[in-house]
Computed example of a mutant assay.
Amino acid sequence: MEVRVAHVRKEFDRFTALRDVSLDIRSGELIALLGPSGSGKTTLLRLIAGLERPTKGAIFFGDEDASLKTVQERNVGFVFQHYALFRHMTVAENIGFGLKVRRHNRPPDAEIRRRASELLDLVQLTGLEKRYPAQLSGGQRQRVALARALAIEPRVLLLDEPFGALDAQVRRELRRWLREIHDKTGHTTVFVTHDQEEALELADRVVVMSQGRIEQVGTADDVYDTPNSPFVFSFIGESSMLPVKVEKGEVWIADRAIGIAAPDTPDGEAVLYFRPHDIELLEGSGGCIAGTVAASRRVAGTRHVELEVGGDRQRVELEIPTSHPASEKTRIAFRPKKWKLFPAAG
């Protein structure tokens, strides 16, 4: 099922949660809505679900305008962060609930039991059908919640921070498992997360959101390697930035050219963005960026250093080998191997 969000605006009293948002979701695609708190990602999910109505614009399921249809009429499956399982029902009863309460086309009880058993096998919980939610781990409960959402054979599957209540190890296991389930079932799936690692690992495409707008839509490689705005560069992955000046196709810090050519960038103030790990260390200080170590700490297999650069002691973070003899007041020269320039704000 294709889903199209067309020029949607959503207002709550005097607060605007979404501002002219448009998005095409392909049939069978697994897409992530990624952004910080308040970016509008959960509001967008609720609009697709039918839990909210757009102030302006429309939501299409295929060629059909679904904007005024209810959740039931849209036939969407929803998985929440906190499971929302019925405590007084067994696992099998929870999974079959959506089918059991159907007013139209309700399957016979035997078919509901067969479907629940089939889904228990799919989510790898066979043998637990008679247990109650309180007897399950957090990861098992979330698997039951997903099986319940799949039981109604939804046109679209929606997940709101599905792993947010779980510890890191269980989250990693369930991410891989969810991708496998998606590949087997082929549902059009949209999930909300603020966890960039989760989005980059799971999704076919990532929708990066900020302040009620979509900043960028693309694959994990697109948004990480070719971010189209300062927000996306700083939000996706680790980043460092330095205020610079572009003159005649060269990048300068204060009165020093740093060996970076920018022939297609207009002269003027700019900001240089780069990844802390994506640098080369250099000897000397000519034609590069140089600074003094202000702090150094070991992080797993690398050393992270904070470097004070320029007369205004602008700080950037670098990842260097643990064997590097970096200590406070050590001078380090480097040049980014990959970088991007954005015009200075204002």
Rank of each mutant, 00 (worst) to 15 (best):
V305Q: 03
G268K: 00
F235A: 10
D255P: 04
G311V: 12
I279H: 05
G259C: 11
F231N: 00
Y273N: 08
D312N: 11
A290M: 09
E247Y: 02
T265H: 10
P263N: 13
D222M: 02
G287V: 06
M241I: 12
A262G: 08
G249P: 06
P266I: 05
E238H: 10
E250F: 09
S239V: 08
P263C: 12
G301V: 14
L307W: 01
L242V: 09
G284R: 04
V223C: 08
Q216C: 02
G301T: 13
R298S: 15
I258N: 05
I279W: 01
G237I: 06
D264W: 11
E247M: 08
N228E: 12
D278L: 09
A295S: 15
I279P: 05
V271W: 03
Q216P: 02
G310M: 11
E306R: 07
F235G: 07
A294T: 13
A257K: 13
D267N: 12
I260V: 10
R298H: 11
H277R: 14
G218R: 04
I253L: 11
T226F: 04
S240Y: 05
T302R: 14
I260N: 02
I258M: 01
T292R: 03
T219K: 04
C288E: 05
G268I: 04
P276G: 08
N228L: 07
Y273H: 10
E238D: 10
E283Q: 06
T219W: 05
L307M: 09
V305F: 01
F274Q: 09
R297E: 15
T302L: 14
F274D: 06
A270W: 02
